[in-house]
Design a protein around this nucleic acid. Structure first.
Lengths: 197, 197
DNA sequence: AGTAAACTTGGACGATAGTTCAGGTAGTGT
DNA sequence: ACACTACCTGAACTATCGTCCAAGTTTACT
């Protein structure tokens, strides 16, 4: 029974995922303000009523998008960390897990987030900020941080919180630059941020 | 002539300022999404057509609000710094201008921004994020940072950028907490952020 | 006083929004 | 084959949106 039920649900689930993906594209292009049942439906190439069938209200749609977005980012970060660790091998670090090469990697990642992936970064922060206004969205938004916290090995809790805050700040400030900052411009700041006290 | 001309403009200017103030209140309460000509007009207690007369489009209204908001914050920070300096007197600091008492002051300020002034903080970041999407808003948003940079004495450019980014990150992350963090909870992080390398 | 400009405002127009619903289709279980 | 449920969708309803305009009022200057 469970197989059949899953099979039946799969059809609707696929449609749901298409709608969520289309919503994210709309947010990347036009912001949360551009999200309407009609724009999302047009982006997904489906009739308008289909979005209202799967998501009763616009808030439900935004919640689902935020959750999906947070999950994507979590898996992305997971592989990033996994890759970095295997590359460093068993490099012995006397202090934190962060060495100079970590600063390089983070700088490149930030530059990408503010350059080619700028739209996505804006979308994420718009959803993040939306969560501050809708309590229903907050657990999903907090998972953003929780996943990072649980994945990254951090000996010093305070230092790690400072690191996360610094990354957020650099991203937000980078979003209002006319020209996105390069990894080289970012590196000194990131290095200072990672430097242990 | 200039006096009379100013006098004539003063009437419209007052109305303009009322509209901008009402817009900010609306953003604090309902977010940028809640800003319409009608909601702003109702908040200000004036007819709808009055807002369209003084601000041809909604974007003009948001731009003006962002600029006004940035100016308010600049003067506020100016007096905050002035007060802090006069309080510390000529305390000799061997390293940066930031000592332990500075961490106290910043922590309290952050706790206020996330507690009683939470609505205002959300409004500021929504406008800030809006600027990332509308190039016309960016200069005003950048002034936010420029004013701080020009006002605060900073021997170490990189350290100061890290400090600003950290503050931004702490504020944004604090906005999705169900209970706003207290100054005591914030202090360790702020102290670490201010600690010179 | 008279004129021009700035200001104010009630009302209206077309466009678009969220949401609803009746009717149709496609799979599932018996 | 049959009923059942989930899924899908075209069309429509009402509300609200941005914007505009014509007519009235106030103010500044000659």
């Amino acid at each position: 029974m469970s197989v059949r039920t899953d099979g039946r649900k799969a059809r609707g689930e696929r449609r749901r995922q298409e709608i969520i993906a289309a919503t994210l594209r709309v947010i990347e292009r036009d912001g949360v303000a551009g999200v309407t049942h009609r724009t999302v439906a047009k982006e997904a190439g489906i009739p308008t009523a289909s979005t209202t069938y799967h998501f009763a209200t616009l808030d439900d749609l935004l919640i689902a998008t935020l959750i999906s977005c947070a999950r994507d980012m979590a898996t992305e970060v997971y592989w990033m960390i996994d890759r970095a660790r295997s590359r460093e091998g068993l490099r012995r670090s006397s202090e934190l897990s962060s060495g100079p090469s970590a600063a390089d990697e983070v700088s490149v990642l930030l530059a990408e987030a503010l350059g080619p992936r700028r739209g996505r970064t804006m979308a994420e922060y718009e959803l993040y900020l939306l969560a501050s206004r809708r309590p229903a969205l907050r657990p999903a938004a907090r998972r953003w941080l929780d996943v990072l916290t649980s994945m990254v090995r951090h000996d010093d809790e305070v230092a790690f919180r400072v690191f996360l805050a610094g990354i957020d700040g650099l991203l937000i400030q980078g979003l209002i630059d006319d020209e996105p900052p390069t990894a080289d411009e970012l590196r000194p700041v990131v290095e200072y941020l990672l430097k242990p006290r």
